[in-house]
């Protein structure tokens, strides 16, 4: 599973891993804005962003091939838009869409692959993201695994009853639809149970971060240097 691999990466040790998550979040955001607003014909700029990201991947000790491959997950989605632009005769824009989406997902992967998810959420909260939103993200991440496992069990159960093979097409389509409904109902029930378990252990509306974040000089220095490089690329200096 993707998020298991990412989690293993995020627990490695390197200078990039050790940086305060807030510094990494701000720099990533800046990079995403720079990529998104770059002109379609800025081939050299895209190459420079890619170089910058590659340097970070190497410094963090992440497997470059693994990150590059996983970033490709965005291509089918971006590909549809690119094809439309290409058919409309705008080849430069269609290439830019592919490059921009690929680089953006690559950047997000580098962030998630170098920051343990608990620290990432703590960083988001400290940067002023609404607490309830951060909590929702945290639970979404935790229970994705449980819910996907439940979905796999349901699929196996349906298969073992032969439901998906010889049935007429209507039934074949209805089975997953009702499975999604059941999954939703179960997830809802589970959410209530989790909340009860939290209350039972004294939950008072706020999950305290374990390791307090400390923004040190080296974090500011790294964030400043990276932001400077991104701005220089974007402004063509």
């Amino acid at each position: 599973m993707h998020h298991v691999v990412l989690e293993q990466w995020s627990r490695r040790a390197s200078r990039v891993h050790a940086l305060d998550p807030r510094a990494k979040l701000v720099v990533t955001l800046l990079l995403l804005i720079a990529i998104a607003t770059s002109p379609a014909l800025g081939g050299a700029q895209f190459a420079a962003y890619a170089g910058l990201l590659a340097a970070v991947v190497l410094a963090a000790g992440l497997p470059p091939g693994g990150v590059a491959l996983r970033a490709g997950i965005v291509l089918p989605f971006a590909g549809a838009l690119a094809v439309m632009n290409w058919l409309a005769g705008d080849v430069a824009r269609s290439v830019a869409i592919l490059l921009k989406s690929y680089l953006s997902v690559f950047a997000a992967l580098v962030l998630v692959g170098t920051t343990p998810v608990a620290r990432l959420f703590a960083g988001l909260e400290r940067l002023g993201a609404p607490r309830s939103l951060v909590l929702v993200l945290q639970f979404l991440y935790r229970y994705l695994f449980v819910i996907s496992e439940q979905a796999q069990h349901m699929r196996l159960a349906a298969q073992s009853r032969g439901a998906l093979e010889r049935a007429p097409r209507r039934t074949r389509l209805r089975a997953p639809a009702s499975a999604v409904a059941v999954l939703f109902a179960r997830s809802y029930r589970r959410a209530e149970a989790v909340y009860q378990a939290m209350l039972a252990r004294g939950f008072a509306g706020h999950v305290e971060p374990v390791a307090p974040l400390r923004l040190a000089g080296k974090d500011l220095l790294a964030a400043g240097a990276a932001s400077g490089a991104i701005l220089a690329i974007r402004l063509g200096l």
């Binding site: 991440y141 378990a197 252990r201 999950v207």
Partner: peptide, 19 residues
């Protein structure tokens, strides 16, 4: 699974005292 909701085992066990 309903009781273990934090990202790591240690954080989960520390949830009660932290709260």
């Amino acid at each position: 699974d309903e009781q273990l909701f934090m990202p790591s085992v240690l954080e989960d066990v520390a949830f009660g005292p932290l709260s």
